[in-house]
Design a protein around this nucleic acid. Structure first.
Lengths: 165, 165
DNA sequence: CTATGGCTTTGAGCGCGCGCGAACGCAAAC
DNA sequence: GTTTGCGTTCGCGCGCGCTCAAAGCCATAG
């Protein structure tokens, strides 16, 4: 089950404007198919990213992955959990640099918990602002759709900032 | 007044979960300070982009701009309206290529209205999906914040997909 | 028993979208 | 006169990954 499927199912559960329940959150982290010792292809499929990207994350120092006797990567549950978190943050726009910083904090021990929390709070605000920006853009787009070729009277045309578009 | 200011004001008007009224849309398109014959600096300030970006858009064929006797760009109201639309679409994630296509349709005349409408509808769906993705990411982030260093009991830790993060 | 295709590894290099910077010139304004 | 603002062009940079190359292991197929 790819992450994209998870997202799609979760979105369906949420509906267009339903409340976000704890169940939805957990559905995103449905790790029923996360067993110990996953291959790179399995993890890639789970997270809906390419094996290349997984190797890229590893080189970036975001996660350490053991190798088997053939030198192939073996992802344990902890690595997968971390990657779930990382991909989720990436999806919400956190840049690689911040993720690297965050992981460095994690690896530095419990003393860095407050700073990690600060990062999460700041990221939360960024997401909120982005959602509101998009909400406005959505409204503008819908407004444009509604007035497009509809009533093209002078009033509407005058209000439309781009009547000729 | 920069577009960012407009956005900020509009966001304040909207509040955290207020309805999006027509007034809000119009506030985004408050063109009180759009007079005829604006300079590139004025337009850049209005749209909160750099003059460089404006020249880039012009080179990309998105807008035609007249010149004065000194060869300096002179933006008329129509150009500014188009740029308002373009920057709004950019802000909501429409790629340059699509904007170029859209503008080509606009310049091709009224026969292309249906296709333009299709583009807007598709873009609307993209924005909607993006908003829902971000909403889920926001919920996940808030969930993580809530459980971070709070009750670190075994139950919560077991539910947390990245308890060690 | 080979072979053919598919997975993996590493490393380096490429590409895209979107502008930004640097360099240089010209005209107006202080 | 020198500072300011605009013009143009060429090239660079960044974020994020993908592609390509060379090579090895495994399975299924002829």
């Amino acid at each position: 089950m790819a992450t994209d499927d998870l997202m799609t199912r979760a979105l369906e559960m949420v509906g267009d404007d339903g409340p976000l329940s704890v169940e939805v959150i957990h559905s995103l982290t449905d790790l029923a198919d996360v067993h110990e010792s996953m291959t790179i292809a399995e993890v890639a499929d789970l997270l809906d990213i390419t094996p290349h990207t997984l190797r890229y994350y590893e080189r970036a120092g975001l996660v350490e992955v053991a190798r088997d006797s053939q030198g192939h990567r073996v992802y344990d549950a902890a690595a997968v959990r971390r990657l779930v978190f990382l991909t989720r943050m990436r999806l919400s726009g956190m840049p690689m640099r911040d993720l690297q910083h965050y992981i460095a904090l994690v690896d530095a021990g419990q003393d860095t918990v407050p700073e990690r929390l600060d990062m999460l709070l700041e990221h939360r605000d960024i997401i909120r602002r982005r959602i509101r920006e998009l909400t406005l853009s959505l409204a503008a787009t819908e407004y444009k759709i509604a007035t497009y070729g509809g009533s093209t009277g002078p009033d509407v045309a005058a209000l439309d900032t781009a009547a000729d578009l």
